[in-house]
Design a protein around this nucleic acid. Structure first.
Lengths: 231, 231
DNA sequence: CGGCTCCTTGAGGTTAATCAATCCTGGTGG
DNA sequence: CCACCAGGATTGATTAACCTCAAGGAGCCG
């Protein structure tokens, strides 16, 4: 059911059934196979998206073919929100896996906000979180690659172990799985696969993590956190 | 008059007199002398700010004393908006010059949004612009310093020559002034003063710009744009 | 068994940070 | 008016990070 998918997204959780129904009336489900572009930078934009299943990347083309990944999007997150107030998309997006999305036309959504201010407030919250995250990304890119990687791994474990706002942050099991190929991860970290590979080895050699394919375990949380702040 | 200052800010321009009056009732004017911090990362947050005069920088401390400047804020822009939905500030801010700001308490502002959805829509627009800008910053940091500098200079001229939405983009006079010390500019570009100095020289030697203190002129717009896209 | 793609490893080159002088420029006091 | 400082800005030499290019694995599917 559309309404159920919408409710699962943090941005829309907590809305009343009536509000969700209004929202459901304007969204359009779409499917994108892995690798498929969803929109491209400078495309004229009349909708943004909610990802219900799969994985999507937001990125910029760097002229010489390399790509700068801005963020990875997981289920329940929105992307392209900024076009609510622009005529064109500010970046490219593509499905990394087979993905199901809801297309949300901007015009209808804007009028809905005026009718249900609560909705605007919710979206503001989402965008605030995005801003905070991007602040962090800017900071990240000024750090050396191993520190960047350490921060990424720590973040990965942190969000895995705080599934809701309800419980304490668990720090027991520090085993996680890389959610993407190393190629994609390197792009996400703003580096190349070769450098990522070496950085991972370095962390493993320093006994900060144990690595086995895409599965890894944090052995020395404190040491990793220290590294994550190195200039 | 407070209302006049508010109306001058793009985020609040276009609101009705009544809405502006309501807003004026909750904001608190503040003054910060040059160099003074306005808030620090992780401070508990109950307000965001509109800059009415002066210049403010948003930055992160990089542990070893170096700072990562996230953005520079000019008159009419807001900063700290993201705390509308967080309990703590995600970065530091400090006045770069003597600055006048309006402090906008989050609680009052949130209730005002529910009453005047138009206001929420406006703030969404502002945050969308910020997001787009930060996307660009992430892209920037993956480019070599001269390209980053070229993009900055082009942006500086562009915004100078498009004062409103009303006119064509002027490309005639390409003389601009660096708005900050070179030290601050280097931080804004994610580099150090030495490297900035060399990059500026390089642009001047290539006849792309002419430089005289803080005044500069773009001599070869096309060449500069080409450089701005180099990996 | 080939032919993939992805990842890893190694060698070399380039960019930019670091360290250390030197040079301005504006302000101060003689 | 000039000597003198202090800060920022520049320049040079050195070093470290990391990208590039090139060459192997390692798994996977035909």
């Amino acid at each position: 059911m559309i309404v159920d998918d919408l409710r699962k997204a943090p941005v829309f959780a907590g809305l009343t059934d009536g509000q969700l129904a209004e929202l459901a009336a304007i969204v359009e489900p779409r499917h994108f196979p892995a690798g498929e572009p969803i929109f491209a930078q400078a495309d004229t934009a009349d909708a943004f998206y909610l990802l219900s299943g799969g994985r999507v990347k937001v990125f910029k083309e760097l002229r010489d073919g390399r790509t700068a990944t801005i963020r990875h999007v997981g289920p329940g997150e929105t992307f392209g929100e900024s076009v609510l107030f622009h005529e064109t998309y500010p970046a490219n997006t593509a499905a990394m896996e087979d993905s199901d999305v809801y297309r949300i036309p901007t015009v209808a959504f804007r009028t809905l906000i005026l009718k249900e201010p609560e909705l605007g407030l919710r979206l503001l919250g989402t965008m605030a979180r995005l801003l905070t995250m991007l602040n962090r990304r800017v900071e990240d890119l000024l750090l050396p690659v191993p520190a960047r990687l350490a921060r990424y791994l720590l973040e990965l474990c942190a969000e895995k172990h705080s599934p809701g706002e309800d419980g304490l942050v668990m720090r027991g099991s520090l085993v996680c799985y890389l959610p993407t190929s190393k190629r994609e991860l390197a792009a996400r970290l703003g580096t190349v696969p070769e450098t990522l590979s070496r950085a991972l080895n370095q962390l493993a050699r320093s006994k900060l993590i144990a690595l086995d394919g895409e599965r890894f375990e944090i052995l020395d949380l404190h040491g990793l956190e220290r590294l994550a702040q190195k200039t």
